[in-house]
């Protein structure tokens, strides 16, 4: 017994643990939660059903929009088709990001009744929820990739790898996904306060955000105050930057005649640096907001005993 206790003491309970140990612990916590999340998400079905689920939803979402385009334009408007396909492909990330963390809260609180144990563990609850949500995020990625591939291969989206702006794509994806995760944290904070039946809320929020960020139509068609809201959302800049990276000739979702952006800047199409700087700025803003929201929600949940509540109706 003696050596085990000593080893345990030496590695885990030392009072003078360094910051590096803390990071290592956080990483370990995240990794474990991510592995658990993957097992929870993926062990329920055979691979074919799993793939169907991951792909069918985003693909159907994109098809709805493509058919809407077809019934009006009658097969023309290739540029707009690319516009729609990119927007809906990225949207599967948004839905996955928003629902991943939120569903972890609901699942672990109401179904597995483990949230209280996660909460009292030394690893931050946000980190653990992030880990749990990673699997969904990965599935969102599969959905996005397949939607883009189907768009290019079967829906006539004009994609030319030679003109693709890879650095912009990588940078915007990194920043954009951080923004999505931050929004996911905000949403996890929200469902920490709400009842079990709120499992459908993430999609409702994602659907509403659809309106604001120029995912499937240019912001210019929206009223000015709504455009202003869209411009402070990182998703708007993310979608525009990815679209710019993949299809440099695509219609801008941000600028153009009738848009607030053009009215304010006089520019008809923001360049890649503007897109990246605005994406960075709004992502930082949302991340700070997310951290604050989660902290407030966590405190309120603790104050009102919501961490281990069950609320089914």
């Amino acid at each position: 017994m003696e050596p085990t206790v000593a080893a345990f003491d030496r590695h885990a309970l030392r009072a003078t643990r360094s910051r590096r140990d803390g990071w290592r612990d956080t990483w370990r916590g995240y990794r474990t939660a991510a592995r658990l999340g993957w097992r929870v998400e993926a062990n329920w079905a055979d691979p074919i059903l799993f793939l169907t689920y991951s792909v069918a939803k985003p693909l159907a979402g994109a098809l709805i929009l493509v058919v809407m385009l077809e019934v009006v334009s009658g097969g023309g408007a290739d540029e707009y088709r690319a516009f729609i396909v990119v927007g809906s492909a990225l949207w599967s990330f948004v839905i996955a990001g928003l629902s991943g963390l939120a569903m972890s809260v609901l699942d672990d609180r109401e179904r597995y009744r483990m949230l209280k144990y996660l909460y009292i563990s030394p690893t931050s609850l946000a980190v653990l929820l992030l880990g749990r949500g990673t699997a969904r995020f990965a599935m969102g990625g599969i959905g996005a990739a397949v939607t883009l591939a189907v768009g290019v291969l079967f829906l006539g989206v004009p994609f030319d790898p030679a003109v693709m702006d890879v650095p912009l794509l990588l940078a915007s994806m990194a920043l954009g996904l951080s923004g999505v995760i931050a929004l996911g944290v905000v949403f996890a904070a929200v469902v920490l306060q709400t009842r079990q039946d709120s499992w459908s809320y993430p999609e409702a929020v994602a659907g509403a955000l659809f309106l604001l960020v120029g995912a499937v139509f240019p912001l210019a068609v929206l009223p000015m105050p709504v455009q202003a809201l869209g411009l402070v959302t990182p998703l708007t800049w993310w979608v525009a930057a990815v679209r710019e990276a993949l299809f440099p000739d695509a219609v801008s979702s941000i600028a153009g005649p009738g848009s607030l952006y053009t009215r304010l800047t006089g520019v008809t199409e923001p360049d890649r640096w503007v897109l990246l700087i605005c994406l960075l700025a709004t992502t930082v803003l949302v991340t700070l907001g997310a951290m604050l929201t989660f902290r407030v929600s966590e405190r309120r949940a603790k104050d009102r005993g919501l961490i281990d509540q069950t609320t089914g109706t």
């Binding site: 039946d197 809320y201 659907g207 509403a208 139509f217």
Partner: peptide, 29 residues
């Protein structure tokens, strides 16, 4: 007992529907 649903289940779906309306508007349908 928990009226937050009106926001999530009434207002937000309306906005989602609005998004599709604007798609048609953008297409001059």
């Amino acid at each position: 007992r928990e009226p937050s649903w009106t926001f999530f289940e009434v207002l937000l779906p309306f906005l989602t529907t609005s998004a599709f309306v604007f798609v048609y508007r953008a297409l001059d349908a």
